[in-house]
């Protein structure tokens, strides 16, 4: 979990940096080449396939607008995204809050570790049937499922991040007698941010998965619910549009994540770059 952090962050940063050096049209080409190739392959293979379950992409795209833009966007997509955001926000608050407390106190860490490991090992989807019994099938249950699954990478990465705050920096804060609140804000939380962001990124994909799963079990609206309804009523092109829409939602959310991440972690990427430059 924590080993992904040093490996992915700089690699991604340098990949983007390499991309940024290219002219605009080359950049777009690099980004869009593979999606275009995949769409073309899908188009060609589905056009000839004579399968009810694998309709031509042409038909799928034709049904996309009528399926989603005539009411379902507000009736299904917005509620889904609302639950996703609520669950994700809850996971962030609990994960960062509890993770900071655990990271700062070795006693608390020893006390909680076995229980945390136990709950972490349970795949959140299996909790859905049980939670339905206690919390019903309403919005509360779905938000809880999303938060319960997404909280783990945030929590564990926050613990590691808080524990990993530089010793010399800690000593500096102590010798200048920075207060507890100042230390928490300007030392601990800022210092742990690279790991917290890594956890938050992993949590985002988990949250999307759980958003869909929680709606597949029991719901009266939502993206997952709608896709299952289409499947059960053999509305194949519509079902495929739902899957495409889910993918697009994922892309948009990850772009948003990156836009928020850049100003938060500018110092981290800058520091890494200057180290590589041997400054």
């Amino acid at each position: 979990m924590t080993t992904t952090q040093p490996a992915t962050a700089p690699a991604r940063a340098s990949g983007l940096a390499a991309l940024r050096r290219l002219p605009v049209w080359r950049r777009l080409l690099t980004l869009l080449a593979l999606p275009l190739i995949l769409v073309v392959i899908w188009w060609v293979t589905s056009d000839r396939a004579d399968s009810f379950f694998y309709p031509p992409l042409r038909d799928i795209l034709a049904t996309f607008g009528p399926t989603w833009f005539e009411g379902r966007l507000t009736a299904d997509v917005v509620p889904s995204l609302g639950r996703l955001l609520a669950g994700y926000a809850l996971a962030m608050v609990i994960g960062v809050g509890l993770g900071t407390a655990i990271g700062l106190s070795s006693r608390l860490r020893a006390f909680l570790e076995p229980v945390l490991e136990f709950f972490r090992a349970i795949p959140p989807p299996v909790m859905v049937p049980i939670l339905m019994l206690f919390l019903g099938i309403g919005t509360g249950m779905k938000i809880f499922v999303i938060a319960a699954g997404a909280v783990w990478p945030i929590l564990l990465n926050t613990v590691e991040g808080v524990r990993g705050v530089d010793e010399v920096l800690r000593d500096t804060a102590r010798t200048y007698r920075l207060g507890r609140l100042t230390q928490l804000r300007t030392l601990v939380l800022r210092g742990a941010t690279p790991q917290i962001v890594t956890g938050a990124r992993q949590a985002l994909s988990i949250a999307i998965i759980l958003m869909v799963i929680s709606e597949m079990f029991a719901a009266h609206n939502g993206l997952g619910f709608t896709i299952v309804q289409f499947q059960r009523s053999f509305a194949m092109p519509e079902m495929w549009t739902g899957i495409i829409l889910l993918g697009l939602v994922g892309v948009v959310l990850s772009v948003l994540f990156r836009i928020i991440e850049r100003p938060v972690l500018f110092w981290y990427h800058g520091q890494r770059q200057s180290h590589r430059g041997g400054n």
Binding site: V168, L169, D171, T172, Y176, T182, T186, R190, W267
Partner: peptide, 26 residues
């Protein structure tokens, strides 16, 4: 106290001026 490890004793998320100012704020 001034430590040997200068790179690790300055807050990388604060500017030079903010680093100097932080203890004064406190």
């Amino acid at each position: 106290v001034v430590f040997q490890e200068y790179a690790r004793s300055l807050f990388p998320w604060l500017t030079v001026a903010q680093n100097v100012e932080l203890p004064l704020k406190e």
